[in-house]
Amino acid sequence: MSLLQVEQLDARHGLLQAVRGVSLSVSEGEILALVGANGAGKTTLLRTIAGAHRLAGGRVLLDGKDVSRDRAHRRVAMGITLVPEGRRLFTGLTVRENLLVAGARGRRGYWTVDTVLEAFPMLRDRLGNRGGELSGGEQQATAIGRALISNPRVLLIDELSLGLAPIAVDQVYQSLQTVIASGATIILVEQSLDRAMNVASHLVCMLEGRTVLEGKTADFTHKQVSEAYFGLSSVGREDGPA
């Protein structure tokens, strides 16, 4: 059975429908990459799954239980946590406080301040620094650590590499391998197709709010995904644009 299931999800920004009838499912331990051009609806989809954006239609199920009406903090307690786009650290709080504030509310489990520091050693010397004093890579590591410390069953990561120097992206991805090795279930929004296809076992491509390609990453070539990304063709779904 799927750990997380999204059924016919609709989400709006005012009159604009950003997500149109998207369905997807993730099983335990699976890494799903969500790719698509800017404005495809990826961020809105993740925020809606996390409960930060109002759902206009459809359902979100965690372990078969409908969580669509639960507020974001309740979903964190149940095991859905989002690393938001742009990191959104609490810049007035230190790195330790950023971790503790999330750790106090989430589920108990493997991830603690110590295990987060093992996964992201770059944060060891920065625990007393405020969020606003960190480099982009350190901020992203803190944001992922802050999400992990609530011991999520499904970790949603929005734009992991956005605004980071290539070396910082490498560092963060290197640390993310530790998280993946721990058996985490992840839905990852990533601009870089190469990185997404390297790290994910499954892939969903979105275009104008709809799913235009979905399946196992190994079943697609880079070219097929690129074409779906830019709306040049659709594979795997009949309702995608031509």
Partner: peptide, 13 residues
């Protein structure tokens, strides 16, 4: 600082 993100880390605002 950021009520939206506070909810996302599990705080009941």
């Amino acid at each position: 600082e950021d009520p939206d993100t506070a909810e996302l880390v599990g705080i009941d605002t």
